[in-house]
Design a protein around this nucleic acid. Structure first.
Lengths: 248, 248
DNA sequence: CGGCACGATGAACAGCGTTCACAATTCTAA
DNA sequence: TTAGAATTGTGAACGCTGTTCATCGTGCCG
């Protein structure tokens, strides 16, 4: 009897419809202008119905942030096979910058918005961050080994410096303060090249370079999607990562 | 007789009380948690009364942003007499970074928040930005003249690169993403030093370095921090007839 | 004294996120 | 087949929010 599974699938479909509606509103009008009532209207449900799928508005945006990371992941690892490690590093940071321009609302949600506490709180759940850092740090080490960067370079600190720089350009453009106009791209290039040149020059880095806390404690894994025991997260484009039900 | 003046003074006092209350709430609880009703309650007025002094909530925060720039100005020009121009540049950017830690709510309001459109819109009204840029660019030129930086350095582009870097660290800390913990200070230093080293190495900068538009068009005077407060409230509320008033 | 400009207000409007009792439907078990 | 238990959707409401508006009182001017 595939009844349970059918139910789970239907549940998943409504869940997806909610996320899609929220994403549409959110991409086109920004986080602040998304309301539960508008989402509900778009999927032709009552506002209260959404709460059967997502426990709060924040939960929806946590899910959207995960979607954003998936998007970023697609665009930010374009040439894993790039033979030149320095070129690979460059390209990774430029891809991050490009993402901030192509998906400013996602970028703001993921990196800027302070009104969705759960995203900040459970930041370490986003595996993408760790993976990218690991990959780039490896590439930086490779640069050191090949003599493209100093042998005694601290790759973690170098990664953080590059991140900070490109992050700054991206934020300045997304927030439009100060206005960069069409010179943002040039600035992004400048920042990366200048930082790389500075690293090449062998400036002593004081940054230590590891996580402040221990490994992130697994938070409640709520926010909808699959609720009943049949997880069904494997079906199609369901979210990755854990979707078991919370203890409660 | 000084009746008119006394009135103006009283008006100014209420205006200040509103700003003070808003600032208190805002600094301690963040922008999102400030409501007109709470501000009104704090000054023991009705919510509607505030609209005789500020035409909207945004106007209040525009005024607070100006206050923030005054604060930043106080902290960011600590040693105009610093003889070493390179040291002066360093210190200016570090002061900016310090400000972001001491007044995160102001920082967010001034540089991050996208929900107060007027701030972004009238950004160029904040003279502090232009002045600081002018001063630092001058110092960078001085560095070039003294051989501390390449002679052919584009000081505007260098300023932007340094701004982007320190901005990135500040934002990462204020937004707590990715979590920097107590290593933020070290990262700030690293970014400045690495960028300076990169500039010293003579990386070609592609950034052009001037405003995108023409000179900022002066917007209608808003919010009334000082004298013209009467103007804003008048223009907003005084739509009752075209009453003549001695425009002084 | 009349007229009037202004300050302050209570009530209201439209919207928000969220909760809750309740109805309808569907599945489970006897 | 029927009773009970879930599950899902809803309308109404709660307590917020920013903002507007008619109205009332107060003090200034002629």
């Amino acid at each position: 009897m595939g009844l349970k599974e059918r139910h789970a699938r239907e549940r998943q479909e409504v869940s997806r419809a909610i996320l899609d509606a929220a994403r549409d509103l959110f991409v086109s009008e920004g986080y602040a202008r998304v309301s539960m009532r508008k989402v509900a209207e778009r999927i032709e449900y009552s506002p209260a119905a959404i709460y059967r799928y997502f426990s709060s508005k924040d939960d929806i945006f946590f899910a959207l942030a995960e979607e954003g990371f998936r998007l970023l992941d697609e665009g930010a690892s374009p040439r894993v096979d790039e033979p030149d490690p320095l070129e690979a590093v460059r390209e990774t940071f430029l891809a991050f910058y490009r993402f901030s321009g192509q998906h400013p609302e996602y970028f703001a949600l993921m990196f800027l918005d302070r009104s969705v506490p759960s995203i900040r709180q459970y930041w370490e759940r986003f595996a993408f961050i760790r993976e990218t850092r690991g990959r780039v740090v490896g590439r930086l080490r490779e640069c050191s080994a090949r003599g493209l960067l100093p042998a005694d370079l601290n790759p973690e600190a170098a990664f953080s410096a590059l991140t900070a720089g490109i992050h700054g350009v991206a934020v300045m453009r997304v927030c439009d303060r100060p206005a960069l106009g069409d010179r943002a791209d040039a600035l992004a290039r400048d920042v990366i090249e200048t930082t790389l040149a500075g690293l090449r020059a062998g400036t002593t880095l004081t940054y230590e370079g590891r996580h402040p806390g221990g490994p992130a404690a697994p938070p409640r894994s709520r926010y909808g999607g699959t609720r009943s025991s049949a997880a069904s997260s494997r079906s199609s484009s369901g979210r990755t990562s854990t979707s078991s039900r919370g203890s409660s």
